[in-house]
Nucleic acid binder design. Sequence first.
DNA 1: GTCTATATCGCGATAGAC
DNA 2: GTCTATCGCGATATAGAC
Lengths: 222, 222
Amino acid sequence: MTSARAGKLVAPEPAPRGDTSVRILAAAEKLFAEHGFGAVSISAVAVGAGVSKANVFHHFGSKRALYLAVLRNACRDAAQRLEHLETHRGRFQERFSAYAVDMLDTMLERGQLHRLMQRELLAEDDGRLAKELAERVFGEKFARLVAILRTGQARGELRADFDPAIAAITLIGANVFFLQSRGVLRHLPDAGAAVDPRRYGAALADMLLRGMLAPGAGAAQR
Amino acid sequence: MTSARAGKLVAPEPAPRGDTSVRILAAAEKLFAEHGFGAVSISAVAVGAGVSKANVFHHFGSKRALYLAVLRNACRDAAQRLEHLETHRGRFQERFSAYAVDMLDTMLERGQLHRLMQRELLAEDDGRLAKELAERVFGEKFARLVAILRTGQARGELRADFDPAIAAITLIGANVFFLQSRGVLRHLPDAGAAVDPRRYGAALADMLLRGMLAPGAGAAQR
DNA sequence: GTCTATATCGCGATAGAC
DNA sequence: GTCTATCGCGATATAGAC
């Protein structure tokens, strides 16, 4: 469980040689993602980063400021990855599949970070500033996906009688849920081969495409 | 928490049944769901339940035990709601839509509870016991949905070339994500009318049905 | 069963030497 | 920039009267 006392002084990281604030940020991101804001102590962060408690305060001023710094750092990374997505110009099937696969890959690559975001979303208590940060990044991702779907509809490649926003939520939601629940899904006997990310991503895109493609635009391939 | 403080393994729940215990459980469920385990103090629970701090310890022994009691209580409730789901026997479209809508309704009705579950899933630190509890409930839900899909495939109502588990994950994931992210989605300009639960549930079922129905079994209606 | 009072510990944050 | 030492506070948990 995520008790505040969980941070029994375990061995610090092999200290990947870098600037101190970077190590502090990395340790904080890891701990916040694993235990949540309220359950992580500055002592635990300091131990994880291999520095003293006071040094953490020297660099970030307060626990809340450290938390916001972690979130902003995470948002910056996520925003950078969006730049590589909009370049495709082929048929809709290829663009959609590429987008879906890339989304899942990005999530898996930095699963910790996405867990931290989800935690912030689930909090909803205060943290309105942090939530607005998440909105900003998430909103950009969402708007681009909706735009891709709208373009497909305008071109006649996609049926016009479905809501692009709902389709986008379905795709994102299925991916986020997959990421969140892999540890549990692995233990469900009925899940079978669905726990493999590649199979899951491909099958998801295929199924959604069948629901979105215009009748005369050719069958979903794969 | 692998603390040396753990000491003795206290015998499982005394299963308290008084009015006070119920109020404590309710207050604890609310607070844990809103803020997470680590950020909730026993004092806050006591205030929420209108009793003294010491009384909380009298009834539940420790904070950890209170948390497990809340989770067990939540699982029991969720399991009971499953009993009403398996009775339908009509065409696949109706059964699937009914299942999907009921799932979303249940989630919305007790969103707090589902948030608590998701938090536990996101922790992944230890808490294996609690996670196994979640697995047990979630696994039953999941198995029934997969069984419904398999039945549809066996009857020829559904295409045979998709993985029922992946379709189930997609449906559950889209619903869970919708529940989690409503507060954020409401602030996205591109989301439009997709934030309405009824419209969302209906459109989601419709889109998934188009991807699953056998070609000759008739078009998805509505 | 419920309370008040208290013990003990770890938290966030600060002061100041080096 | 980094540390040790410490403050003030609130946390979990206990003792014991009613």
